[in-house]
Write a protein that binds this DNA or RNA. Structure first.
Lengths: 410, 410
DNA sequence: CAGGTTTGAGCGGGAGGAACACAAACTCCG
DNA sequence: CGGAGTTTGTGTTCCTCCCGCTCAAACCTG
């Protein structure tokens, strides 16, 4: 059965929506810019831009500031920017050892963010839901009002069904079959969508929009922590698969006989995950991020065992990346989590193995870079998916808020 | 740098194009149907459908036949179908041991097809170009006229840069860095686009539109011959990657120490390719499709060596498929080439290993099926990509043909 | 300060689909 | 067999929305 594809037919109302969306999306992704820049970006005429931007400002979504002099001849064009707190989204992230929450507005502006450490271990679902909701009170701007938030996005390190936010399994949290989206939505009691996604899928979205992969339309993001996750951008769009499970590359079949926590044997994760690096360095596999930190520090100090562990892990990483380059033909591979550190210290061997295990043609056009956003990437990505409906259809979102009527000629 | 994304802004001319495209695409993909079916499919009103279909028929692109009585109350709706020979495409396919050519019209109607055996070996590029062009004269309908053909599509088993049809490498043909698109275009002398793509990428397109995966929007197609190729449909669109190289999963890192012809070691292809099956059955790795045929026949006759070879190859296939299921979360895996036969005889073990090497969530929603189209899949897919511009913009294509003016109000 | 250039403002026009009313063609049922 | 009900084609009018054009404003250059 064909998924509910977008209506094929275009009608004049669709056109308006698409054009408003084009403007808002351009401002959201490329930042504030003059009307004439918008003309260039969208391909619309000055007249159209004027009317549409006018409606956006009238609705409080955008604002026009005095033009910035750019030293070129001609009448200066006023700068249009989105109003960050007009339609804010709330983003949550459940990390391995921390919880975080943020309020993020259009344009990706962070209006407030808090992070707390979480004792490593398998917390009950309800405890985490409570903690997250409790975090809201500690936001700099205070607890967001129910009516003002447009949607909620959540990043979870696990296999998540995107439709309803069911967490099929989250090994680091000890969850399986947790209807997290529904639980959080109930607990919040807001009448807005709660979107739950895999951490790495959100990480790559953030890196694509605000980080290392801006403007790059084919990206493979590989995130190393205890396990290995990935998020993939294909032709500018996130790869989700039929239910949102795509990108679970940690369990690609690989060499080795180590039993994986997924139940299988020889998964790539068993060779490149944090546990593998730790084991190679002679530490317990569950020494966590502090253990990893120690390994990297030791390597920097010249410790041969640590250096060798890093090299071996880098090689295994490079081999797998080669396969991913063959599979996706990306223009960029972004390394997140401790793979970023690994890249600093093992860049050479990673590339060496990637080179050995990929075809010349795709290899020639790929760059491997460390992530730019660090631990906040999933949080930023969560806001991006939460804001997506606004970007796709700014007008009706305004209408549904109540405080502002439909954009249509007031 | 952002690839030339579609213009964001919509204008009324865009709307018309999109709506004509929606109608033509619906008819092309879902077959002839009544006007009222088109109303349902496209979301346009009766008025709009009437006008647009009217223009298409006036231009000779579509035709309206007497309504088919369907035994339901109400005035019968005339059936609209595309005129197959209005804007035909020419498709070529360069197989391991055959060459084929076809003329295919809108709706995927095959107007004529020829296939010749090709001596196995490394033919020169020019010889193959000559053979292909020569094939046109042996088409049932005669050599297509230069002016009537709308585009040319070519399927090649190799790594192809989609932009210009440069064949980076084609091991079965012994090619590397062959500008095949340009060569064929020159030799034909027609003033139409020549689109060259990887065989498997075209195969999955054909299976998606006309074969085993109709209506399935997330598909992984894996094709086994001498090597292993794949084509992937993500959310209804082919996965191309930055330059069209995506889907080279034959060289995913895998267990084993066999040297691959790609230069690397332990590629998946070395364990599941035709050579691997042959070797396991005690035949030379280059025994080709006749050799494979013999193995399957022997297995059907109960030969233990053949059975074991098939089982081992099936296991290796299942393991890799598990990884692909994790990576892409497809709704369907389609097995082409000799993998189709393999599936018949080793269905059990393939699934067993797939199950062992994939996560429960994505595994639960995937089906593994043999390809439905056989050796013709790439040829049909080549026609699909060649016809794509017509589907995307029926009006200007008509205009550019010369014989018919722009669709605009005549 | 005059000329050139770029852009905003406002108005008219055109394109294209929606909505509506009516007619046509079919089924169903008494 | 014929009228009621239903679905769909036909044609007209209307509405939405963007484009194009003209004029004015605001900047740079010399």
């Amino acid at each position: 059965m064909r998924s509910t594809r977008q209506e094929l037919g275009q009608r004049s109302e669709t056109v308006r929506r698409a054009n408003l969306s084009a403007i808002v999306r351009t401002l959201h992704e490329s930042g504030p810019q003059s009307r004439s820049d918008l003309v260039a970006h969208t391909g619309l005429t000055r007249s159209a831009i004027r009317v549409l931007v006018g409606e956006l400002t009238a609705a409080g979504l955008a604002s026009e500031d005095r033009a910035v002099r750019r030293g070129r001849p001609g009448r200066p064009s006023p700068e249009v920017s989105l109003v960050p707190d007009a339609l804010p989204a709330v983003a949550f992230s459940i990390g391995v050892d921390s919880l975080s929450a943020a309020v993020i507005g259009l344009g990706g502006i962070v209006l407030g963010v808090v992070r707390i450490d979480r004792p490593r271990g398998h917390d009950g679902v309800n405890a985490i839901v409570d903690d997250l909701v409790g975090l809201l009170d500690r936001l700099p701007g205070g607890r967001p009002q129910s009516g003002s938030v447009v949607a909620v996005g959540v990043a979870v390190a696990g296999v998540v069904r995107s439709r309803d936010g069911l967490v099929e399994v989250a090994p680091n949290l000890g969850w399986s079959n947790v209807p997290f989206g529904a639980l959080l939505a109930d607990r919040l009691g807001w009448r807005v969508a709660v979107v739950v996604r895999n951490e790495a899928d959100l990480g790559v979205l953030a890196e694509h929009r605000r980080g290392a992969a801006i403007g790059v339309d084919d990206v493979v993001y590989v995130h190393g922590e205890a396990g290995v996750g990935s998020g993939i951008i294909v032709d500018g769009r996130p790869l989700a698969g039929a239910a949102g499970y795509a990108g679970e590359i940690g369990h690609l079949p690989f060499v080795g006989q180590v039993r994986c926590r997924c139940g299988s044997v020889g998964c790539w994760e068993t060779e490149v995950g944090g546990g593998a690096l730790l084991a190679r360095a002679g530490l317990p596999r569950d020494a966590g991020s502090e253990g990893l930190e120690r390994v990297f520090a030791a390597a920097e100090a010249g410790d041969p065992a640590a250096l060798q562990a890093i090299e071996a892990t880098g090689r295994a990483l490079g081999v797998g990346l080669g396969g991913l380059v063959n599979t996706f033909n990306p223009r960029m591979v972004v390394l997140g989590g401790f793979f970023g550190r690994l890249h600093q210290q093992a860049r050479q061997v990673i590339w060496e193995e990637l080179e050995r295990h990929s075809l010349p043609a795709p290899r020639a056009m790929v760059r491997v870079v460390p992530a730019a956003l660090g631990v906040d990437a999933p949080l930023l990505g969560a806001a991006e998916v939460a804001l997506e409906p606004v970007l796709a259809d700014p007008a009706t979102r305004l209408g549904s808020r109540g405080s502002l009527v439909q954009l249509a000629s007031a």
